[in-house]
């Protein structure tokens, strides 16, 4: 479970953001996570409850938006949805696709005071 390591990286960013903005604390954090990021949203939230202790985000709420997987087919050129273990084109079935989204792990926004 590497979600705790990911949370520690998130906390480091929050500490920097708070200092740069001369704020005191973080109230809300929005993260965007795709199924292909390799990070599980449920465990990320669990790990965050531990990682935030004693930091500027001690009382912060974390919400996680799911980024859907979208692929573009290199053969038929169409775009569509896919699943983590089947990134084939939903239109022609070819496997030669490009992932357009679904692998992000982003800090989207924070609320500070």
């Amino acid at each position: 479970m590497h979600e705790l390591s990911v949370c520690q990286a998130l906390i480091e960013q929050l500490i920097t953001i708070v200092a740069e903005n001369q704020a005191r604390s973080v109230h809300h954090i929005k993260v965007c996570n795709g199924p292909l990021s390799g990070v599980d949203s449920h465990f990320l939230k669990q790990a965050f409850t531990v990682a935030r202790l004693g930091t500027v985000a001690e009382h912060a709420e974390l919400s996680i938006d799911r980024e859907p997987i979208q692929v573009r087919c290199s053969v038929c050129g169409q775009e569509g949805g896919a699943t983590a273990n089947s990134l084939v084109c939903p239109h022609c079935g070819d496997w030669r696709t490009e992932v357009l989204s679904g692998d992000a792990l982003l800090l989207v926004s924070v609320e500070l005071s």
Binding site: E61, L62, R66, L105, V110, E111
Partner: peptide
Amino acid sequence: PVSIDGHHGAAPGQRELSILHGIL
């Protein structure tokens, strides 16, 4: 967005900052 926690915008005295930065 499907939010795991319900959330309804910044409260008075708080400000929301857009970051868009990879966590790793």
